[in-house]
Simulated scan of single mutants.
Amino acid sequence: MKPDSKDLTALAPFPVVLPSWQHAPATVRAFTTTRHGGVSLGPYGDATGSAGLNLGDHVNDNLAAVKQNRDKLNRQLPSDVIFLSQVHGNIILNAADLVVGNTNIGDAVLSTQAGQVCAVLTADCLPVLFTDVAGTVVAAAHAGWRGLAGGVLQNTVSAMRNKGVQEIIAWLGPAIGPQEFEVGRDVLDAFAAQVPGMQTYFKAKASQDGSEKYLADLYGLARKLLNDIGVSQVAGGERCTVTEVGQFYSYRRDGVSGRMASLIWIAPD
């Protein structure tokens, strides 16, 4: 059996961000990695020029380095992660159905089995981790603006409820903050049909070319969407991947960037 501990900060040989949620079941483990603690170099390293923990194998990093980073992560987990092929959509997969070497296209994954890890990769998009209050179902969702507008969070919650759970809690992991996420009118329009009062989450911003620009609040949009479907316990949303250069990878900030993982599982007995 691989190691398992409630104190993940003491367990992991690399820095992690723990969910700030309250009332989480004692059997559930969750964290988000940072850019520290791996072997990747260059733009995939940390902010000081040292090696970094890039976990994305699709960002032109050295694949041998990515494998070493993933192996280091897997040694701290009850099961090896099978990462999704994320497409900014709303497909939810069951972790039990994922197959090593297959494409596994989806943007969220859930599990009811102890020791089975759910994970998503991000570098500005919003990772959302879920558990029911009894700790019988967990899930991880990748929610950039396209996924949010397309219903990835609603689909994840629906899939969890189809497993027989009712009260669900969520944590909004590190993502681009509301003062950094500049978008065009197309993003605002994408939310107009499904988020009443969505203007609250878009602040007009002056642009040099005169085009419509806004600062979008991914965290606010996610909370609103979750609250509207009965998920009232929503924690997190305090971090910013763009401004916290020393902690997080950011595609918006750097262009070429690694990826963090947000992971959740039910601890094995």
Rank of each mutant, 00 (worst) to 15 (best):
C118W: 09
G150S: 08
G89W: 02
A141D: 11
G38C: 06
Q116W: 04
A143F: 10
T33H: 06
A141R: 02
T33L: 07
A159G: 02
T48C: 03
I169C: 13
D80L: 01
Q154A: 15
C125L: 03
R161L: 12
T103L: 15
R70D: 11
A96E: 15
M160C: 06
I169K: 11
V28C: 06
S40A: 14
P78Q: 13
I168E: 12
D132A: 03
T122G: 05
G101Q: 12
A114Y: 08
V39Q: 05
S85A: 13
P127M: 09
V128L: 05
V59C: 12
E167K: 14
Q68W: 00
G38V: 07
Q86G: 12
D80Q: 10
W171Y: 15
L110I: 14
T156G: 10
M160D: 10
T103E: 12
N102T: 02
I168P: 11
N155R: 12
G135R: 09
I92Y: 02
G144C: 14
D80G: 09
L126H: 03
G150L: 04
A141L: 10
N155Q: 15
N162R: 10
V137C: 05
T131G: 03
G135Y: 10
N155K: 11
A159F: 03
D61C: 13
G89C: 02
A119R: 02
G52V: 06
L110E: 13
D71T: 14
T27H: 07
L172M: 09
C125Q: 12
S40I: 01
A114W: 07
I82R: 07
A51Y: 00
L126V: 01
V100Q: 14
D46S: 03
C125H: 00
V59M: 13
A149H: 04
G101M: 12
V137R: 00
L98R: 14
T33G: 05
V87Y: 05
L126S: 04
V137K: 05
N162S: 13
A51P: 02
L73W: 05
K67D: 15
Q113I: 10
D132M: 10
D97V: 01
K163M: 14
V59W: 01
S79R: 04
D97A: 13
N60V: 03
K72M: 15
T34D: 11
L126W: 01
A64G: 14
H142L: 07
K72W: 04
V66A: 03
D71E: 15
L84I: 01
G45E: 07
G135C: 11
S40N: 06
D71P: 01
L121I: 04
N62W: 05
D57A: 14
L53W: 08
D71F: 02
P43M: 08
A114T: 04
V100H: 06
C118Q: 09
P43E: 11
V87T: 06
G42I: 02
G37W: 08
V117P: 11
R35N: 14
G89M: 05
A114G: 09
I105L: 10
I169L: 15
G38A: 12
I91P: 00
F31M: 11
